[in-house]
């Protein structure tokens, strides 16, 4: 299944600015360990898929992976060797908008050390800095 929305209201969107920290999706909600972004940025569908493969290759069938982000926004690009003008380019790929604090991936059923090694393989693929977090301590 393609990693993009099934239906959209508009094909293209303006780029905008990513302001502030995440106020939703910034806690480990499903698994035991999470990979939290400390930067703002856009993560492409290809990168999310590459991270999924890297995590699954590490944990195999011994743990569970939760992907907490989805590429909702289209990014347009102009064809090569074309002059400027003639309107906005066509949708080229899809990205997920990430704010500082967003939890990108979660794993369950693995130890902290395994989660750390697993996410280390993923961290260098990502265009944002990340850190390993556990579940919220104390009262939720």
């Amino acid at each position: 299944m393609a990693l993009m929305p099934r239906r959209v209201k508009h094909r293209k969107s303006q780029r905008g600015r990513i302001k502030g920290n995440a106020t939703r999706g910034h806690r480990v909600s499903f698994g035991d360990w999470g990979l939290q972004s400390t930067d703002a940025g856009h993560i492409s569908a290809q990168t999310i898929e590459a991270c999924r493969i890297a995590i699954m290759q590490y944990i195999r069938g011994e743990g569970k992976l939760y992907i907490r982000i989805f590429p909702h926004r289209s990014v347009t690009a102009r064809p090569l060797e074309t002059r400027m003008g003639k309107g906005k380019g066509e949708p080229d790929h899809w990205v997920a908008t990430v704010k500082p604090g967003t939890v990108l991936f979660e794993v369950a059923g693995v130890s902290q050390e395994a989660a750390k090694q697993c996410f280390a393989r993923v961290a260098y693929k990502l265009p944002v800095r990340v850190k390993l977090i556990g579940r919220t301590p104390g009262v939720n």
Binding site: L3, M4, P5, R6, V8, H10, R11, A45, G61, H93
Partner: peptide, 21 residues
Amino acid sequence: AKDVEIVQEDVGAGVEPELIG
């Protein structure tokens, strides 16, 4: 533990979603 087959999925390059309305 299950043996899972790790298959790279198509990320939808060149395919466009349906437009609402």
